[in-house]
């Protein structure tokens, strides 16, 4: 699974992207976020308030109960501020 982080999530986590193999129990975005929080203080800080975290799976916005699997591209980022 390929993970991408943008804006302040990238700064806090300290990575723009990474490949991960979460445990089999991780089946949706919420489970993935919970697993990521345990990977270090940067992750825990970045993912502390999910009200300001948006998720895209394979470049489409999804809710936190959306399933995730090994081949997916999952992006975590703050609410967008373009235009």
């Amino acid at each position: 699974m390929r993970l991408l982080y943008f804006a302040w999530l990238r700064s806090k986590i300290g990575l723009a992207e990474e490949s991960v193999e979460p445990p089999a129990g991780v089946t949706d975005v919420a489970g993935l976020v919970e697993w990521l929080r345990g990977r270090g203080p940067g992750y825990a800080d970045a993912l502390a308030n999910l009200a300001v975290v948006k998720v895209a799976v394979n470049q489409e916005y999804v809710p936190f109960d959306h399933p995730v699997g090994p081949g997916d591209e999952v992006a975590l980022f703050p609410p967008v501020t373009g235009g």
């Binding site: 980022f77 609410p79 967008v80 501020t81 373009g82 235009g83």
Partner: peptide
């Protein structure tokens, strides 16, 4: 414009006298 501002994945990092900060939605 209205939809672009809330859906297109862009983020602005401002430079101010007090340092850099991410613009909030």
């Amino acid at each position: 414009m209205d939809w672009l501002k809330t859906k297109a994945p862009f983020w602005k990092l401002e430079e101010t006298p007090e340092g850099r900060r991410w613009v909030e939605a």
